[in-house]
């Protein structure tokens, strides 16, 4: 049964993750008054990259790519997706956050293994940005874990009932949404993969199937991060309700990213360590003193 549930989560992440990315590209195109690609364009892109004959850059590169994809798949298995909880009792917030770093470090190792300076700059920027958004995110989520006296995501989901955490912790939800924008690498926090500036950063030397695997990793990562937001703040829900909430959050993120330019990396970290961090402390103050709606 566990195997089936894990397979269900992966198939959901694969199919709906890529579909929603395609819808996001369509929305961006419509914002720019273009017609845009087909909704299944990302499937074509993925399978095309897997069909090409690529170049490797040594075993540490191969290992890094596999480690990145494997780490993200491992952490995705613990995220509750629309009523499917693969490992009941183990869907702990800290387990997921801990496993996420394996994927990020795998990517950092593999991409630095290519020896390209743009890749090193991109990885350095990605880790710096992570330092920026993780702090306000952790403070805001931490106040919520303190309020519920648990770090189990299904427990928080069921404790919400019909009364979403979005309304109980409005400032915390705002902070988490701003951090989500950085986690997904969307504008204005797009500095790590700036294509025109540092030639797409970590992905600079990726050809063929390596590109495909990293695209898949990116899709899974986006799916896990938005799923966490939906579970923690929008109350999860049954399978299709969950996907509907997911789509709403994703469209919001895409709309924000399609109209904004890019922050420089120090501006992004400065922003995260001033505005969202103060808001997160306000949320902590309110939670500790019992101002929860």
């Amino acid at each position: 049964m566990t195997v089936l549930k894990v397979a269900g989560i992966f198939l959901t992440a694969f199919f709906f993750g890529l579909t929603f990315e395609g819808i996001g590209r369509k929305i961006t195109a419509r914002v720019q008054r273009r017609y845009g690609p087909r909704w299944y364009q990302n499937f074509i892109d993925l399978f095309k990259t897997l069909s090409k004959h690529g170049y490797t850059h040594g075993w540490i590169f191969d290992f890094g790519v596999i480690m990145a994809l494997g780490g993200i798949i491992a952490s995705l298995g613990f995220v509750p997706v629309g009523g499917i909880v693969a490992f009941p009792g183990m869907d702990n917030f800290f387990v997921i956050v801990y496993l996420f770093t394996i994927g990020s470090l795998g990517m950092a190792m593999g991409m630095v293994g290519t020896g390209n300076p743009w890749a090193s700059i991109g990885v350095a920027r990605a880790l710096t940005l992570m330092l920026g958004y993780e702090v306000p995110y952790m403070i805001s989520i931490g106040s919520m874990l303190y309020f519920y006296r648990t770090s189990s995501i299904s427990a928080i989901m069921s404790a919400q009932g019909g009364d979403w955490n979005l309304f109980k912790f409005p400032i915390g939800a705002l902070v988490a949404l701003i951090s989500l924008q950085g986690m997904l690498g969307k504008e204005p926090f797009e500095a790590p993969i700036a294509p025109a500036e540092i030639a797409s950063g970590p992905m600079v030397e990726l050809s063929a199937k390596y590109m495909g695997l990293l695209m898949l990793m990116n899709t899974f990562m986006e799916f896990a991060e938005i799923s966490l937001f939906v579970d923690l703040f929008l109350g999860g829900g049954t399978y299709f309700v969950f996907l509907l909430k997911y789509l709403v959050v994703w469209v919001l993120v895409v709309l924000i990213s399609s109209v904004l330019p890019r922050f420089r990396i120090e501006q992004a970290v400065y922003f995260y360590w001033t505005v969202p961090i103060i808001l997160a402390f306000v949320q902590v103050f309110m939670t500790v003193n019992g101002f929860v709606f």
Binding site: R25, A29, R34, Y35, G36, P37, R38, Q41, I44, D45, Y55, P195, A196, A199, S200, M203, V204, E205, L206, S207, M211
Partner: peptide
């Protein structure tokens, strides 16, 4: 003219 509707797009590096 919107090239992206044909599935085409600019890429940053020769590898990709």
């Amino acid at each position: 003219f919107d090239m992206e509707r044909l599935g085409m797009g600019p890429m940053a590096t020769p590898r990709q």
